[in-house]
Amino acid sequence: MNILFLLIPLSLVLVIFAVFAFRWALKNDQFDDLDSPSMIPLLDDTEEERAQKKAQIQDE
Rank of each mutant, 00 (worst) to 15 (best):
E60Q: 07
D59K: 09
F22A: 05
P9M: 01
T46L: 00
S36E: 13
Q56A: 13
E49F: 00
V15H: 03
A51V: 14
E60A: 05
F31Y: 14
E49S: 01
L7E: 12
V13P: 00
F20M: 09
L26F: 14
L4W: 15
D44S: 09
E48F: 01
V13K: 03
E49A: 01
M1Y: 13
F5D: 06
L42F: 13
I16P: 02
F17H: 02
L4Q: 11
V19G: 04
S38E: 14
S36Q: 08
K27H: 06
L6S: 07
I8P: 00
T46C: 00
A21I: 08
R23H: 08
F20C: 07
A21Y: 14
S38M: 11
L4I: 09
L34D: 07
Q52N: 05
I57N: 02
P41L: 11
D32A: 13
E49R: 01
T46I: 00
E60G: 02
L7C: 06
Q52F: 02
E47K: 04
L4G: 08
A55E: 14
L43R: 02
Q58Y: 02
S38A: 13
N2Y: 15
N2C: 08
V15W: 11
N28M: 10
P41H: 06
I8S: 00
A18L: 12
L4Y: 15
P37K: 07
L12A: 05
Q58M: 04
L10W: 01
I40S: 04
P37A: 10
A18M: 10
W24H: 08
E60W: 09
Q56V: 02
I57E: 06
W24I: 06
A55G: 04
D35N: 08
L6Q: 08
V15D: 03
S38V: 12
F22D: 05
Q56D: 13
S36I: 12
D35T: 11
L12W: 02
I57M: 04
K53S: 08
P37Y: 12
E49N: 01
L6F: 15
A21L: 13
L6D: 09
F31N: 02
F5Y: 09
I57F: 06
M39P: 01
D35W: 10
F20W: 12
N28W: 15
V19T: 13
D59Q: 11
I16F: 12
E49H: 00
Q52Y: 02
P9F: 00
F22T: 05
N28F: 15
K27P: 00
P37M: 11
S11N: 06
D33C: 03
